[in-house]
Write a protein that binds this DNA or RNA. Structure first.
Lengths: 340, 340
DNA sequence: CTGAAAGCGCTAACAA
DNA sequence: TTGTTAGCGCTTTCAG
């Protein structure tokens, strides 16, 4: 069977306590015994068991990551960057896709609690506030990414959605679009993006048109429908800001399905800058979230929390950036004339 | 602190053994005590600790999933379906992206072994054969998906790559293409797909042209370069079979960058049927892997292995299907003439 | 600097 | 049907 600490101790002619000390390298051990023990450990291919260590109260070096859907490129990319940072730090991450379903959220969290994970990263869309509060009550470290629930006292990292919406809209405005619509999902992040959109419009002296603000579920299909709705209006927009890339792809498809061309007839800007923005045709102008940094950062935040290195909760905003590709341009004159 | 089995036992006025029995519901317990214990468990919000159970040799209900890259849509989709099936069965999955890097593969596996995972699912691209053999020697259940290494005695599930390549090529042939090229990565699965490609060509009386077979790393960029290489030949192909969707996207981009149009000037077919095939323009004709079923299936296979329910190793092939979208069509006459 | 021993929370004989 | 008890592999005082 697998070697245990006893085997090592016996072979090295020391006690298990000594072995334990060299493993965790604490306590004072003479260089000689340390070397000897280390050698035996190698010879026996000894691997300390996490389960046993966890039982004595040590960390498991495992965290739970709850995201809405691993198959969604945005979350997959986030997950990957979290995982990478985790591995650098020696922590494994178990991933759970919740589909924004409260039952699943609760079930997965309680499962992971039983498995003694050291903490949780909750990603955008986590809706079950009671579960979070419960975790907090149990003093289990939690960090949230790409979502914040202001009522919760939790470390939070997100992109500045307001600013992102503002940037997107200013870009469209700078292209001289006058009729700009927005499609958002029903979520706080979209609310903020839409606030930014409104602000940009007002600042430049435009009216905010409620007909130009539409909500949709976050999917290609949703984007398609929302775009159709917009384009069917008597005075359709010449530019559409979709609050994420998935929606934007749907919008592109709807526009093209009408025989219109992007960006000449309708300009489209997305949000997230996932791989989808680079594979669509035309390539999508979008607001980039610094996904990689976000993953790293949230992991670091959580680890600090786990190690008890800090007590103040933090709420951090990272700045999004405009990435111009080919889905936005000045409105063509004909469209302008025809519709104004 | 958290309630333990002792707390429950005390409150219920029974022994911990009894509690243990109702938890695992084995042994004979009177209905009355069972109910009582259950109630106390609920009252105390008692959650059995997995770490402790694992220590006594029970399963951890956690498995490790090693994939090349979680940010790659194909693997993200696979991971999601594995995760789903896992949750149905009560097992969590910890994911590790290896980047096909042997050191990472080894490091992650040994980490997870220490964490006493019940088994591993290894996905395509896992190159470190010694690690697998080591696992096998330790009697740790392993299952491989979308990849098979014939020398290894392991449960294996993959799509019939040979047939997939055949299907793709036959589709192109049925569209009356004469000059069909293929782009594959350096991997067994691509080898098989290319074999299918050759077979289809030969069966229909075409010559296999070595200049039409090119290898590339699996990425959009790689697809782009390979396509350029192909299109620069004196007698360029009218159709290209890319061995995965990522490559196919790159091919589309390269073709379009030359001012040619897909599918009129060049037809393109991919492989995998990931989300990318639906977001590109034109939407990609591709060979679909039954990703969802594969995830479910491989999980079931592994679980059976873990439960010792079967001793014979299996190698299963699922059949791929052609999904026709808009990236393939008959070669336009002008192209035919110009080039033949 | 090193070791003995008491748990951590649970399972699984074996008794009763 | 229920309880006693001996571990599982490791950490951690506390002595030596």
């Amino acid at each position: 069977m697998k070697a245990t600490i006893y085997d090592v101790a016996k072979n090295a002619g020391v006690s298990i306590a000594t072995v334990s000390k060299v493993i965790n390298n604490n306590g004072r051990i003479s260089d000689k015994t340390r070397k000897k023990v280390l050698k035996i450990m190698k010879d026996l291919d000894y691997q300390p068991s996490f389960a046993a260590a966890a039982l004595t109260g040590k960390r498991t070096n495992t965290i739970g990551l709850l995201i809405p859907d691993l198959a969604n490129p945005f979350f997959a990319e986030i997950a990957r960057s979290i995982e990478d940072r985790g591995h650098e730090l020696g922590v494994s991450v178990v991933m759970c896709s919740t589909d924004k379903n409260k039952e699943k959220e609760e079930k997965y969290v309680s499962l992971l609690v039983r498995k003694s994970v050291d903490g949780f990263i909750l990603a955008s869309g986590f809706s079950n506030v009671e579960v979070v509060e419960d975790l907090l009550k149990k003093k289990i470290p939690v960090a949230m990414i790409a979502q914040d629930v202001p009522t919760l006292l939790v470390d939070t990292l997100s992109v500045d959605d307001y600013k992102g919406g503002y940037l997107a809209t200013v870009h469209l405005l700078s292209l001289e679009h006058k009729r700009i619509a927005v499609i958002g999902e029903v979520a706080r992040s979209s609310d903020d993006r839409i606030r930014g959109y409104k602000e940009a419009l007002q600042q430049s002296g435009h009216l905010v048109h409620d007909d130009y603000i539409v909500r949709s579920e976050s999917s290609i299909e949703g984007g398609r429908k929302a775009a159709d709705h917009l384009l069917n209006q008597s005075n359709p927009p010449t530019a559409i800001f979709a609050c994420n890339d998935l929606l934007a792809i749907g919008v592109i498809q709807a526009v093209q399905a009408r025989g219109l061309v992007v960006p000449n007839d309708v300009s489209i800007i997305g949000f997230d800058n996932t791989i989808l923005a680079t594979t669509s045709d035309p390539a999508l102008t979008t607001i980039a979230q610094p996904i990689h940094e976000m993953g790293q950062f949230i992991m670091d935040l959580l680890i600090q929390e786990i190690e008890g290195k800090k007590t103040v909760k933090r709420r951090m905003l990272l700045l999004p950036e405009l990435v111009v590709r080919n889905s936005t341009a000045k409105p063509s004159v004909s469209v302008e004339k025809q519709l104004t």
